[in-house]
Simulated scan of single mutants.
Amino acid sequence: MVARWHTVKISVLIIALAMLDLIFTLLGVWSVVGETRNWVLSFEALTLILLLCNCLIIRQVINQHQYAHSYRLVANLVVFSLLFCLAGDIVNFNLAQHYFQHGAVIKHDYLADSVWFFMPGYLLLFLACWCLLGYSGTQVVYFIIAMLITSLLALFSYLNMHLPGSGWYVTLLTGGYALVIAQAALLGLCLLISSRIAKTQRTILALGMILATVADALIGQFWLFGNEGQGYYPQIRAINWAIYITSQAIVIHLPLVAITQAQTSSRTSAAEAGLAK
């Protein structure tokens, strides 16, 4: 229990660092554009390292638990999900500061390159959520229907912000990713209404999943296709960063929520067995 609270405190610190980054950017203390660029990237890299360390600590807590065998898979899925996303973050840092790499319309088209990492990263996270939800039978059918509806809404939203002349590479990658990342919000809603998880935990976890969709929606609307392809940069980058890091700092706790759920179910079963006697 003590170790779990330590991971919560670290996540709060990570979110605080992301908010500090946002405040400093909006106040003009530093910027990813100009002389202070290296300071911003170093600060954000430190935040990502702290995020990864906390995720690994959570995995270690799971491995030491009595239910480790059942939930080690969930912990591993979350760790590898984060590793893929961290690789995507590095791409989005645009260390070489190359623009218009895939055409003459989208300035920050390196964002499309990061999809190669964020796509598998979030798919792994979705699998972890699926394990936690434990759907079966008609629940799976209802989920598939909801997923198709979500995809249609995401496609409609994407087509509304897409700029003609963006090129097939940017269009296919970002369009496909828009359909995928929209499912994070759907899974968040599924977690929110799940009776298998404690109310407070499912509310916070749902928030983390929904924020993942919000963060990427902001990227598409204001960073990638916004301002006629120039992007509202760097302000939108800082806003996106704060939301994205908050999301990641929350969702890495998914394995701990799964363990808590298992403990609650075990105690309930034991109590019912005692009453039966």
Results as ranks from 00 to 15, higher is better:
Gly134Ser: 07
His253Met: 08
Ala215Asp: 01
Val33Gln: 13
Asn160Met: 06
Ile23Phe: 14
Leu83Asn: 03
Val33Phe: 03
Ile259Val: 13
Ala273Leu: 10
Tyr135Asp: 04
Met147Ile: 02
Asn63Arg: 11
Ala273Thr: 00
Tyr99Arg: 13
Trp5Ser: 06
His108Glu: 07
His98Leu: 15
Ile219Gly: 07
Leu20Trp: 08
Leu46Glu: 03
Leu254Cys: 11
Ser31Gly: 10
Ser247Trp: 01
Ala104Tyr: 06
Leu13Asn: 01
Asp216Gly: 09
Ser136Ile: 04
Glu228Tyr: 01
Ile49Arg: 10
Ala276Tyr: 00
Val78Tyr: 00
Gly175Cys: 10
Val257Trp: 13
Lys107Asp: 03
Val251Thr: 07
Ser265Val: 05
Gln183Tyr: 01
His253Pro: 01
Thr260Arg: 12
Ile236Thr: 11
Lys9Thr: 04
Val29Thr: 11
Leu51Arg: 14
Trp241Thr: 08
Asp89Leu: 15
Trp130Leu: 14
Gly188Pro: 01
Met1Asn: 05
Ala182Arg: 03
Ala185Asn: 07
Leu152Val: 07
Ala146Val: 02
Leu275Met: 08
Ile219His: 09
His162Gln: 10
Gln248Leu: 12
Gly28Pro: 06
Pro164Thr: 13
Met1Pro: 00
Val32Trp: 14
Ala68Arg: 03
Leu41Thr: 06
Leu224Ser: 13
Leu95Ala: 05
Leu172Asp: 05
His253Ser: 07
Cys129Trp: 00
Ala215Met: 09
Leu256Lys: 11
Ser247Arg: 11
Trp116Asp: 04
Leu256Thr: 01
Leu159Cys: 11
Gln183Asn: 07
Ala68Tyr: 00
Ile15Tyr: 14
Thr36Leu: 14
Val40Glu: 09
Ser42Met: 10
Ile58Gln: 10
Met19Cys: 13
Tyr135Thr: 04
Val12Gly: 13
Thr7Gly: 11
Val2Asn: 14
Thr260Ala: 13
Gly103Arg: 13
Pro120Ser: 14
Gly220Asn: 09
Leu275His: 05
Val91Leu: 09
Ala18Ile: 06
Gln139Asn: 06
Tyr67Thr: 01
Glu44Leu: 13
Gly28Tyr: 04
Ser81Arg: 06
Ala276His: 02
Trp116Met: 09
Tyr142Gln: 09
Leu50Ile: 05
Cys190Ser: 12
Ser151Tyr: 00
Thr47Phe: 12
Asp113Ile: 04
His102Asn: 08
Glu228Pro: 02
Ile197Trp: 02
Phe24Lys: 15
Ser11Trp: 04
Ser81Gln: 01
Phe143Ile: 07
Ile193Leu: 12
Ile197Met: 13
Val91Lys: 15
His65Trp: 02
Ile10Ala: 11
Ala182Leu: 05
Ala258Phe: 02
Met19Glu: 06
His65Ser: 15
